[in-house]
Amino acid sequence: MTKGGLLPKGFERPTVLASPSDSGVQEKYEEVKSSSKTIVLRISKFNPEKDQRTTFLEFTVPYQRWTTVLDAILEVKNNYDHSIGVRYSCRQATCGSCGMIINGKPKLACFTKISELDSDVVTVEPMNNFPVIRDLAVGFERMISTHKRIKPYIIREDSEISSGTKEFLQTPEDVEKYIQFASCIKCGLCNSACPTMATDSTFIGPQGLAQAYRYIADNRDQGKDERLKIIDERHGIWGCHFAGSCSQVCPKGVDPAMGIQMLRGYLLGYRK
């Protein structure tokens, strides 16, 4: 960006702190550093191969207004305890790797600022309803297998990649019907919050069911009957009690609860 570039009316160019070596900037850095607050970060430690019980390690971590829970965990991992097991990748709520229970609720660690938790103690635990690999990292095998089970792809006889065919055109209205559900990043937070998942190990779960709706609502797809047959069972769509917790915790606005109830509309004959 050029320094003298035009800005829309009413906008002001922010002051950029280029590098600590600039005059006065070092002082500013010191000021920010000294004004930082601290929290007690409690990290769940559990290795299923060695441990019988979960223990919690406590660390006092400084934070700023913009510090995320993942930043704090990595601060501890880099400086105090390298053995902490945590899965992360993009740090921008896109890869869905860093889902965990933060102060009792499933959240993405990279998408949760410490300042918004409004607590002096931040407790991080692995997600519920997933097997623990180590510490904060959980296994996604079951969720991915149920995701595959509902055939998460367009099913139809012809193909847009065959020679002599064209792409399947859709109107913006057609796209609106499913695009919300296509935002799923498979982070597993919905499955972790679901009260049915908490007691029923064979329940498909909100993630898989919402993805079933995503493809059924897509007018390019012709696999509706096939998918409805898979989910039409006690541990499938009928296991949902519409507690809405899945939609409450979704970091991408997918609203699995809505998709599941819409799917029921198809099965009950209210929806074609």
């Binding site: 299923p48 997933f130 007691t199």
Partner: peptide, 29 residues
């Protein structure tokens, strides 16, 4: 609980953390 992290019936405790819909779910049960 430790290995599989299954919440079980404990998941029904503290329903307020997920909003009024979860409270309604709890009351319904």
């Amino acid at each position: 609980m430790d290995k599989d992290r299954k919440e079980g019936i404990r998941g029904m405790a503290n329903p307020g953390r997920y909003g009024i819909e979860r409270v309604a779910y709890w009351l319904m049960r």
